[in-house]
Simulated assay, not measured.
Amino acid sequence: MQQTGPTALVVIDMINTYEHEDAELLLPSVREALPGIRRLISRARDAEADVIYVNDNFGRWRSHHDEILGIALDGPHADLVEPVKPDADSMFVVKARHSIFFQTPLEYLLDRRHIAHLVLCGQVTEQCVLYSALDAHIRRLPTIVATDAVAHIHRDLADAALRMMECNMGTRLCRADEVRLGAESGAPLSRP
């Protein structure tokens, strides 16, 4: 994977019905992270940066992105999905496990788009975001996690996960408004 090139925003698991175990613990954090996620998506779109949604398929093996989105928008927490839904230019990768890379075509997509840096936002900090940051690190792909644009189930585990990403994986942590996207997105990935 090359080190110079554009940055892509990866939105993790935000197309969600929140009808799963631990959802009640997750929902308050999603509401708190939503403004940061919305700002990142809006800025990425304005900068014509790639916005890639990588989302769980919830065991629906015959589904596609429109169906996954439709089910979430018809669900009890559509208010959390509507503001961050993919637009016509967004890319969508379906995953079945925690990491955005595990047995998905994401790495190939990033290579074809010449993406050299990632910004991660979405959920869950101590699960999918953590494992995705680790897999990006293994691939030598510089990564930022926007700390105010990720949601958690357990605050203490999320704080530990963020520390691990920063200390052990070289992930840069910053606020959503500090992330550089589009033409300004070359290294360094966050403003000094």
Rank of each mutant, 00 (worst) to 15 (best):
72 A>L: 04
139 R>Q: 09
21 E>P: 08
113 R>L: 13
183 A>G: 08
63 S>W: 00
65 H>V: 08
183 A>Q: 14
106 L>M: 13
24 E>V: 13
116 A>S: 03
18 Y>E: 02
127 Q>R: 12
131 Y>V: 11
14 M>P: 04
61 W>N: 07
41 I>V: 13
78 A>V: 09
42 S>V: 11
177 D>G: 07
167 C>M: 15
139 R>S: 08
141 L>Y: 01
112 R>Q: 14
138 I>P: 00
39 R>L: 15
13 D>Q: 01
71 I>C: 09
110 L>H: 09
76 P>Q: 12
121 C>F: 06
41 I>Y: 10
121 C>P: 10
3 Q>E: 13
66 D>G: 10
8 A>C: 05
68 I>N: 04
54 V>W: 07
184 E>D: 15
44 A>M: 01
79 D>I: 05
62 R>C: 13
44 A>C: 07
179 V>F: 00
132 S>L: 08
148 D>F: 00
143 T>A: 04
152 H>A: 02
10 V>C: 06
53 Y>R: 04
154 H>Q: 15
27 L>I: 06
133 A>D: 06
101 F>H: 03
141 L>Q: 09
27 L>E: 02
33 A>Q: 11
101 F>P: 03
5 G>I: 05
169 M>D: 07
32 E>S: 10
190 S>T: 15
127 Q>I: 12
126 E>L: 03
164 M>T: 08
110 L>T: 03
12 I>L: 11
154 H>D: 13
141 L>E: 01
7 T>W: 01
65 H>K: 12
147 T>W: 04
20 H>T: 14
166 E>F: 09
173 L>E: 01
64 H>P: 07
159 D>G: 11
147 T>D: 00
144 I>D: 00
58 F>P: 04
86 P>A: 09
118 L>V: 06
53 Y>W: 02
166 E>C: 12
149 A>V: 06
141 L>P: 00
4 T>H: 12
94 V>Y: 12
19 E>A: 13
190 S>M: 14
119 V>L: 03
140 R>H: 08
190 S>Q: 11
67 E>V: 08
3 Q>S: 14
144 I>P: 04
35 P>E: 02
98 H>C: 13
146 A>G: 00
191 R>Q: 14
31 R>V: 05
97 R>N: 15
45 R>S: 03
107 E>K: 14
143 T>Y: 06
125 T>F: 07
168 N>M: 15
77 H>E: 00
178 E>R: 10
192 P>D: 08
18 Y>H: 07
158 A>N: 01
144 I>R: 09
13 D>C: 03
91 M>N: 06
135 D>H: 13
83 P>S: 05
25 L>A: 15
135 D>M: 10
108 Y>I: 14
52 I>H: 09
144 I>N: 03
22 D>Y: 08
77 H>N: 05
4 T>N: 13
178 E>M: 09
138 I>A: 12
24 E>D: 15
104 T>Q: 01
167 C>K: 15
116 A>Y: 02
